[in-house]
Amino acid sequence: MSFIRRRRKGFPDVPLASMSDIAFLLLIFFIVAATIDVDTGISLSLPEYKPNEAPTQIEKKRVLEVRLSTENLTLNGKNATLAELYNAVTTAVRSTTDKPDDEKPITLLLYQGNVVYNRYIAALDQIKHGYKTVQDEVSRKKFGRAFRSLSEDDRETINSIVPVYISVGEIKNND
């Protein structure tokens, strides 16, 4: 056993200089991690109110007519599911991307008054989803990026290639 003197040091100091760095990192972490409550949903522009307005005539082949009742959903007169609605919208929009503006499809969503809001939103959601899918495809082809990462100007370009024409309305009794 050798008698070497062992110096015992006190408790090692915590370096204080880096404390503020750690604090800043925490701050940044919380800012990134905190989700500030942002509303999400579907936007829609209502038509202007003009009493006794004569209905606008649109070419039949442009129109994708969706009718909602409490029991079923019809697409151009045929029964369909929500998935089929999505597919039909996507196909119709995709096939007209290089057509002039007055040949682009218009989706007409008609509902009966007793249909619940949830059902209406579900159908509207699928229609919007269809348009969004094609907008995204065109955006990737043209700019190589997803639609939502585009600049304002580029979005405008996509919106003129794939305009979202959705019209909604209630089915009145005499329809």
Binding site: G41, S43, L46, P47, N114, Y117, Y120, E170
Partner: peptide, 22 residues
């Protein structure tokens, strides 16, 4: 029911508030 939503929307259109978000 959509009939209620529709009548509220009609009032909105009369007041010329046309931009809505669901």
């Amino acid at each position: 029911p959509m009939s209620l939503v529709e009548s509220v929307q009609l009032e909105l259109r009369k007041a010329k508030c046309l931009r809505v978000n669901y």
